[in-house]
């Protein structure tokens, strides 16, 4: 029994992928906790930016926002602006990282958060894009953070809400998406990147105790596998302690 939950594992592993001195467009919940954890460990000068309009807020653990569009997300921010102004900054290339989750993800990192089934007559209507399409269209590097399961990682998604490499190869650029890319996928089993040429997802690092067979069994398509598979080191005591202080009630990232 590891001393952490899968959500804690994902949060820690995602935080480790964030470099210091960069800007990150983060959503409420796990992405925020992940970015805040990075700030308190290896990336003290990571700038958190919220879609609602806040640049570099100081989030209080007991007053964490339930959404990026509420007053708690603006606490002591350096700038409190509008979503459209933040989308200006996104268009201009100021946002290094974006975080996304998704109900369905294909091997090119395209994401569906709109509908299961037909768009006009959906079997399941999901909340929709929000800023997800904008993030994956324009952040310099987009990171997908998700639970790893076969029904989520599928060959063909029902609806393309947020673009990854579209149909692979040069199709993303050809569609007019000339900036940014989907760069990483962090799940509770592994870390993946994308082959630049084909745009196909590639298993890069396995989490402690996970085999490549585990990953392949839980992926509904055939990902590429890096020639030299790395293994991540387990979450440290320090990371878990900070993580739990950031989310004391385990509301966003359930504790062990």
């Amino acid at each position: 029994m590891p001393g952490y939950t899968t959500a804690e594992l994902v949060t820690v592993m995602a935080s480790r992928e964030l470099e210091d001195r960069k800007t990150a467009f983060v959503g409420a919940g796990l992405p925020l906790i992940s970015a805040a954890l990075a700030q308190k460990t290896h990336a003290p000068d990571l700038t958190i930016i919220f879609e609602g309009g806040a640049v570099a807020p100081l989030i209080h653990p007991t007053l964490a926002p339930y959404s990026t569009n509420e007053a708690r997300a603006t606490r002591f921010a350096l700038m409190v602006s509008s979503p459209s102004d933040l989308f200006n900054l996104l268009h201009r290339g100021y946002i290094d990282y974006g975080f996304l989750g998704g109900a369905q993800i294909d091997k090119y990192g395209n994401i569906n958060t709109s509908v299961i089934g037909d768009f006009e007559h959906p079997k399941v209507r999901l909340p929709g894009s929000g800023g997800a399409n904008d993030i994956s269209s324009l952040c310099t590097k987009t990171m997908i953070v998700t639970h790893h399961e076969k029904r989520r990682f599928i060959e063909k998604i029902d609806f393309l809400t947020s673009p990854g490499y579209l149909a692979g190869g040069d199709s993303r650029r050809a569609a007019g998406l000339i900036f940014g890319k989907v760069d990483r996928l962090v799940s509770h089993l592994c870390v993946m990147d994308f082959d630049e040429e084909s745009g196909v997802m590639r298993v890069k690092k396995l989490h402690p105790g996970v085999t490549i067979e585990d990953v392949l069994e839980n992926t509904g398509f055939a990902p590429l596998v890096a020639e030299k598979l790395e293994t991540t080191s387990p979450p440290t005591e320090r990371e878990l302690k900070i993580l739990r202080e950031l989310d004391p009630e385990g509301m966003y990232v359930p504790h062990a």
Binding site: F87, H91, S114, F119, E120, S129, N133, D134, S137, L138, F159, L160, T161, S162, P163, L166, S171, R172, A175, G176, L177, I178, F179
Partner: peptide, 13 residues
């Protein structure tokens, strides 16, 4: 104009 939504299914509907 925007650089968002290109290549997505949002534009189809």
């Amino acid at each position: 104009p925007t650089l968002s939504m290109l290549g997505s299914d949002l534009m189809k509907y």
